[in-house]
Design a protein around this nucleic acid. Structure first.
Length: 861
RNA sequence: GCCGGAGUGGCGGAACUGGUAGACGCGUCGGAUUCAAAAUCCGAUGACCUCGCGGUCGUGCGGGUUCGAUUCCCGCCUCCGGUACCA
């Protein structure tokens, strides 16, 4: 075959790798281990998209590169297959989620294989496999034994019309995504995990891992640790109907205590009932009821107007014994801090706004602003604060905290935004909890030997109607006996959330068939942490935080020896598509870009495949209207999705892989350009033609030696590609290979020794063509087993180099200069150049700046 | 609002620790090949002035430091991502 035809070679080499088990990992090997991991996908019905391909290609290149560099590489793939879509499909069609999952896995796996990824498929993991979730349940038991799993009544999104609990993403504007039925907050019995107990470690250990700073920052913000003080305010008995109570507040600004002119309790705060006066009770109850109906989102999203109700009661400010009114307001969240605040309107924006609305006193305690105009939140000198007067904020905090501690009215405290993790779902398609509830109320964990507790077959996937999972309707599964006493008991009918399976899968890949433990201890020591973990930024917080949490728990119980699971994380950037936009007015008339911005029209798109091309102008298929190209996130509804299968059938997998890496830096958001694929395909064809001919090997290819210049270019290319690949700068590594190919194209003949290393360097990027060329060049398969080419710095050096010459910082010419030339030689050479000399003529040279290898600059007077 | 990131040719992007801005690719133009076209190969391609040699301007905007700034500092603008009453 004379022309490059991916169709003819790609399948062949995919089969070769599979049969030869080229990418099998020997976990017990003596070689240095390198673990490179992708965020495994949820196998959706839609199949792989170009975003998956980007991340997976990036890790695949690293895996193949490291293998060639002599590492024992672990590069596995699996399926995060529990989850909502399969269950919803089951609801609609009655198809068992297992069937849907199997089918989708089949599709995904076929697509991944067609891309030539070097996975060790013997280590494939599926989170829905009982042999896998047995250990997910086992880890849950460890959490439970450690006291880190508990049951609580927690409000969930309850949709009475659907008779089911909805996930946050299924609720839009307080209504169900499907059907638009009202959704209310309803407390239900839930499993919680005490991730808050690990907050400090999750925060501190960010220091020891090599993650992008923005990602660490997001985790820090999510944990939201803040230092402050807890202060007790006694409730004024006479105003609260004789009730004796303390209101404890958390504040980061104890220094402003003298400026506290009211207090606020969250509507859910238990003290509200106790302190509310008879006159105010009706108003308070009404307010609390209204607040309870709002979802968290509603409570926060429309932040414009603050609302609240006075309870009728007062509290005593411990620093000056002044009476301050106690209010109820939903801008205070029950879940954060103590659920109550001291309000300092002079120095807090929210309190200021509230005080203005309800005409509450504003007292300035820190000078430097005008508290009648706005809250002054910055630093300043303390005023109106007795013994704190004259101090700055920092010192006042210290002093007031010691004062409070001395008086027993408060103490230093730390608060977190992070909440405990709501760990149960009222669904069928998830891991069952290995827990039974006995009739006497005891909660008993199943013994390890009884794992896995498998999901029963069900007739109906419809929700039970009570808010419980469909499992609750299967009596023969639910009804069991207590493992301790043998008395009748009921199984837990909640299931675990999708996060559970993905919290530890990276461990299982190391030792996927172990029946004694989730992972062998020795192997864990050898392989963890993961050296490189690549995935989408959408998991920057939750998945990565949850997995870190589990890892730390497993560390504490001795299952793993490492503090952190992922040494290095990289987020691949999003790939954007081009939408073709037009506008439509109320009468359905189709309009072009001239209608942009008008508010009587709606923006619409034409699916990429339906666009009618008039030359290079995109036109509406039915109307004579020019469409406006718009680069944005790919989505089905915008008709701008690029399907990897289509690209493969037109250009082949190698071109798709190469293009996605050539587009730009891995972490950056990049627009898809269909013509770009053609460009890299052209590059691969050029290499092909360089090597191959109708007869087999091209006439240009010789058995001779490489000359000095060729060697220099070759070794320069090897150096650049090696360094850039190591640093994930794939785009510039590819550019270096292109430059080298352009260079050898200009030659009549090229010796094999100058092409072979190129093919080896190409192999991680475009493995199929590289394998084929490798064999054509007379080597035994496979290039995937070959050692990465080395470069020799000596060969790269030249006798002379080109030096830029500036006069007054402006480039005036270049000179060829010997490597070891000194300043005098450089100046002489520069002055010999007419174009440079004419800028120096008749001027006094005041200074010469000579940086060997970099610059020669004349400063003239 | 706050936090994070980014603004470089017609387009995607390159430029190591301040040292020839625009590598590589796309597109465009020209040439070769062809009966012709596609494909391929070779060359040109930031803008402006100039017949040409050459020159001036140019990395979002305005300042600054420096012999020299895409790179460092100060002040803005725009876009993208995250987050949002967290006391």
């Amino acid at each position: 075959m004379s022309e490059f035809s991916p169709r003819d070679i790609e399948r062949k080499w995919q089969d070769f790798w599979e049969e030869e088990k080229t990418f099998r990992t020997d976990a017990a090997s003596d070689k240095e281990p390198f673990y490179v991991l992708d965020m495994f996908p949820y196998p959706s019905g839609a199949g792989l998209h170009v975003g998956h391909v980007e991340g997976y290609t990036a890790t695949d290149i690293m895996a193949r590169f490291k293998k060639a560099r002599g590492f024992e590489v672990l590069h596995p793939m699996g399926w995060d297959a529990f989850g909502l879509p399969a269950e919803q499909y089951a609801l609609k069609t009655g198809t068992h989620p297992r069937e849907t999952t199997e089918k989708n896995v089949e599709t995904f796996k076929g697509q991944l294989k067609a891309l030539g990824f070097a996975y060790d498929w013997d280590r494939e993991i599926n989170t829905t496999d009982p042999d896998y979730y047995r250990w997910t349940q086992w880890i849950f038991l460890k959490l439970y034994e450690q006291g880190l799993a508990y049951i609580a009544e927690v409000p969930v999104n309850w949709c009475p019309a659907l008779g089911t609990v909805l996930a946050n993403e299924e609720v839009i504007d307080g209504r169900s995504e499907r059907g638009g039925h009202p959704v209310v907050r309803k407390p239900m019995r839930q499993w919680m995990l005490k991730i808050t107990e690990y907050a400090d470690r999750l925060l501190d250990d960010l220091e020891i891992i090599d993650w992008p700073e923005h990602l660490k920052e997001m985790q820090r913000n999510w944990i939201g640790r803040s230092r402050g003080a807890e202060v007790d305010f006694a409730v004024d008995r006479s105003s609260a109907g004789g009730v004796e109570a303390n209101i404890r507040v958390f504040t980061t600004r104890p220094d402003t205590l003298f400026g506290a002119t009211y207090m606020v309790l969250a509507p859910e705060h238990p003290l509200v009932d106790e302190v509310t006066s008879e006159e105010q009770r009706q108003a308070v109850d009404a307010y609390r009821e209204k607040a309870a109906l709002k979802s968290d989102l509603e409570r926060t999203e429309l932040q414009k107007q603050k609302s609240g109700v006075f309870t009728g009661a007062y509290a005593i400010n411990p620093v000056n014994d002044e009476k301050v009114p106690i209010w109820v307001a939903d801008y205070v969240l029950y879940g954060y801090g103590t659920g109550a605040i001291m309000a300092v309107p002079g120095h807090d924006d929210r309190d200021w706004e509230f005080a203005k609305t309800y005409d509450i006193d504003i007292v300035e305690v820190i000078s430097g602003g005008d508290v009648e105009e706005e809250a002054h939140t910055g630093d300043g000198e303390l005023v109106n604060s007795q013994f704190l007067n004259g101090l700055n904020v920092e010192d006042a905090k210290e002093k007031i905290i010691s004062w409070l501690e001395e008086k027993g009215a408060g103490k230093e405290a730390i608060s977190y935004k992070l909440r405990d993790w709501l760990f149960s779902r009222q669904r069928y398609w998830g891991e069952p909890f290995p827990i039974v509830h006995c009739e006497d109320g005891r909660i008993v964990a199943l013994p390890e030997e009884q794992l896995p507790l498998t999901l029963p077959e069900v007739e109906e996937y419809a929700p039970s109607g009570t808010g419980e999972s469909p499992l609750a309707t299967i009596d023969e599964w639910v009804e069991t006996t207590c493992p301790d006493t043998g008395e009748p008991a009921r199984r837990e009918t909640n299931t675990m959330p999708q996060w559970a399976g993905s919290c530890w899968y990276y461990l299982r890949f190391v030792d996927p068939h172990n029946e004694e433990a989730p992972i062998d201890k020795e192997l864990e020591k050898e392989w963890l942490p993961v050296d490189l973990y690549v995935g989408g930024a959408e998991h920057a917080v939750l998945h990565l935080l949850y997995a870190r949490f589990w890892h730390k728990v497993l560390f504490d119980v001795g299952v793993v020896s490492t503090k952190e699971p992922f040494q290095r994380v990289v987020n691949q950037g999003m790939i954007l598509g081009t939408s073709y936009v037009y506008y439509e007015d109320a009468d359905g008339e189709i309009l072009g870009s001239e209608a942009e911005g008008r508010d009587d029209v709606t923006q619409k798109t034409v699916h990429v495949d339906k666009v009618r091309w008039e030359g290079d102008a995109p036109m509406h298929p039915e109307a004579d209207v020019k469409l406006e190209p718009l680069v944005e996130k790919m989505s089905k509804s915008r008709g701008n999705v690029v399907n990897p299968d289509d690209v493969i059938s037109e250009y082949g997998a190698d071109s798709l892989r190469l293009y996605e890496m050539f587009m730009g830096p891995l972490e950056q958001t990049k627009p898809w350009d269909p013509r770009g694929v053609n460009g890299v395909h052209r590059f691969l064809s050029r290499i092909w033609r360089l090597v191959c001919d109708e007869e087999g090997l091209s006439e240009k290819v010789t058995d001779g030696e490489a000359d000095e210049e060729l060697l220099r270019e070759l070794h320069r290319a090897i150096q650049k590609v090696t360094e850039d690949t190591e640093a994930l700068r794939y785009n510039t590594a590819i550019a270096a290979m292109m430059e080298y190919v352009n260079f050898i194209y200009k030659r009549q003949e090229v010796p094999k020794v100058a092409i072979t290393p190129l093919v080896q360097m190409l192999a991680p990027y475009a493995p199929h063509i590289a394998e084929e060329l490798w064999v054509r060049l007379g080597h035994e398969p496979s290039v995937s087993e070959a050692q990465w080419p080395a470069y020799d710095e000596e060969l790269i050096k030249e006798d002379t180099y080109e030096l830029a010459v500036q006069v007054m910082g402006k480039l005036r010419g270049t000179i060829d200069l010997a490597q070891d030339a000194d300043e005098d030689a450089a100046v002489a050479a520069a002055r010999a150049v007419e174009d440079i000399e004419k800028h120096l003529e008749g001027k006094e040279i005041r200074r010469v700046i000579f940086v060997p290898g970099r610059i020669l600059n004349f400063v003239v007077g």
